[in-house]
């Protein structure tokens, strides 16, 4: 499948450079290489979830325990995490570094992904979560670093939208 290994490696290397040591994930097509890289790296603990909201709890626990983490999810996983984001991360001022595969944008062929695509950004805005698109390989490392910096200084969730132009090669 034409998921970009090069971009996945850039993202994974950027997370490592940010001292991320726990990565929670629920598989989705665009994330397959990233998840495998996390699994194969002995310095990273990959936590495979049953549902994405668990990742909010895991990242909150890791943060309070002094370990940096990141969450890999599809935008539908973000939708499934919203109660945890509001009633744990926002309520207790917990930084979350959320990498969200942004399905349902221009170019989406899967009809079932199209509804979530339109809901993602309005919901991020409604929740007051700072977000940026990640669509250019040249910007991956600096944007991930800056996203983590803001999350840690503001003590709040931040989101990077992994876009089609970055993740999909065809």
């Amino acid at each position: 499948m034409p998921v970009s290994v090069t971009s996945s490696q850039l993202i994974f290397d950027a997370l490592k450079a940010c001292d991320v040591r726990i990565v929670s994930a629920l598989p989705e097509t665009w994330l397959v290489h990233l998840i495998r890289m996390a699994e194969d790296d002995p310095e990273v603990t990959l936590v495979r979830l049953a549902k994405e909201e668990e990742g909010v709890g895991i990242s909150a626990g890791a943060h309070l325990a002094g370990v940096k983490s990141a969450m890999l999810m599809q935008n539908h996983g973000f939708l499934a995490s919203i109660n945890g984001i509001v009633s744990l991360a926002h309520l207790y001022k917990i930084p979350l570094l959320m990498l969200i595969s942004y399905r349902g944008e221009f170019g989406e062929r899967d009809p079932w992904q199209t509804q979530g695509g339109g809901a993602t950004v309005p919901l991020l805005d409604a929740l007051g979560i700072p977000w940026e698109r990640l669509d250019n390989p040249d910007h991956v490392a600096s944007k991930i670093r800056k996203a983590q910096t803001l999350a840690d200084s503001a003590l709040k969730p931040v989101a990077l939208l992994l876009c089609r132009d970055l993740m999909w090669e065809e």
């Binding site: 726990i22 325990a65 109660n83």
Partner: peptide, 25 residues
């Protein structure tokens, strides 16, 4: 002690996050 005063269901996930982050505790 940490009291998770909302987010029902996530106390065990928080415990997992702490336990993985700090296996000595």
């Amino acid at each position: 002690h940490f009291y998770l005063q909302h987010a029902m269901g996530l106390a065990s996930s928080m415990g997992l996050g702490i336990a993985l982050a700090r296996p000595e505790l």
